[in-house]
């Protein structure tokens, strides 16, 4: 097979490291701006867990129950931006042709994913900060600064496996069908891993399969952050990393094949 010689690039036209970094930053900035200006997309994700916490953690419960619920609604609130921020926007962008355009443009391949990841991390951190404010100011949960930071960090990084899961769901269908399917994943998974009711109140069979759900492991981490779980955490961190890797791989494979 004959090949035409590559036409040499002019020296000035190679992508400098600085411009490459600039492309990543521009993508992140755009991704954050576009959603901050669309409150209809952001608010439901953040309000869900904060309203629940206000009702059950402040009005109906006090003391250690409020501490427990801060962690479990925290896990619930962290999952949302990952699943919906990634899944819904990917499904819509695949449908509208934006993803096709971006793949045709010389966008650095990682910039698109990183932009959405950063947006989800920021949204998850905002949710945790709101819950912390409610917990400390209204429910009078006492937390050390270290515990607060631990919960914030769990939010920022714990959202990532759910980004991967949302991304995978976003590759399964296009357009407006995504929120429905994501809720079918989100709500049962939250219930089955003890984010709404403590696991001890669920049937034994459900308790036994709880570690199947990534949200169960996230809940163990948020409980540890507020000082309610003193077991080793490495296993949960590895489980979440494993979920992230598997769903990222599945999603990337589907995107490569189907666009």
């Amino acid at each position: 097979m004959e090949h035409a010689m590559p036409i040499p690039l002019p020296a000035a036209a190679t992508m400098s490291r600085r411009r490459m970094l600039g492309a990543y930053l521009a993508e992140m900035r755009s991704e954050c701006l576009r959603y901050l200006r669309a409150p209809g997309f952001i608010l439901p994700m953040t309000l869900f867990s904060t309203v629940f916490y206000l009702m059950f953690g402040v009005l109906l419960n006090h003391g250690e129950a409020s501490r427990y619920l801060l962690a479990s609604y925290g896990a619930f609130g962290i999952i949302g931006p990952g699943l919906f921020g990634f899944g819904v926007s990917l499904a819509i962008e695949r449908d509208g042709g934006l993803l096709t355009l971006k793949r045709a443009l010389p966008m650095p391949p990682g910039a698109y994913l990183l932009g959405k990841m950063v947006m989800a991390m920021i949204a998850a951190s905002v949710v945790v900060a709101l819950l912390l404010a409610i917990g400390i100011l209204l429910a009078h949960v006492s937390l050390s600064p270290g515990q607060m930071l631990a919960l914030l960090a769990t939010g920022a990084f714990g959202v990532l496996p759910f980004c991967a899961l949302g991304m995978f769901v976003g590759t399964l269908l296009k357009g407006q069908g995504a929120p429905g399917l994501l809720n079918l994943v989100y709500l049962p998974m939250a219930f089955l891993s003890g984010l709404w009711l403590p696991l001890s109140m669920l049937p034994r069979a459900l308790q036994r399969i709880a570690p199947v759900w990534p949200s169960y492991h996230l809940n163990q981490l948020t409980q540890a952050a507020v000082g309610l779980n003193h077991d080793p955490l490495l296993g949960h961190v590895l489980a979440l990393a494993g979920f992230a890797a598997v769903f990222l791989w599945l999603a990337a494979r589907r995107l490569r094949r189907n666009g």
Binding site: L33, R37, G97, P106
Partner: peptide, 28 residues
């Protein structure tokens, strides 16, 4: 290359100048 596709819904909340800056950032 530059690309104009038949169907591409660009993010509606971004301003035209922001879209231009973003796309230009991909190029050397």
């Amino acid at each position: 290359i530059g690309v104009m596709l038949q169907h591409a819904e660009l993010p509606g909340t971004l301003r035209v100048g922001e879209l231009l800056r973003l796309t230009a950032s991909y190029y050397p």
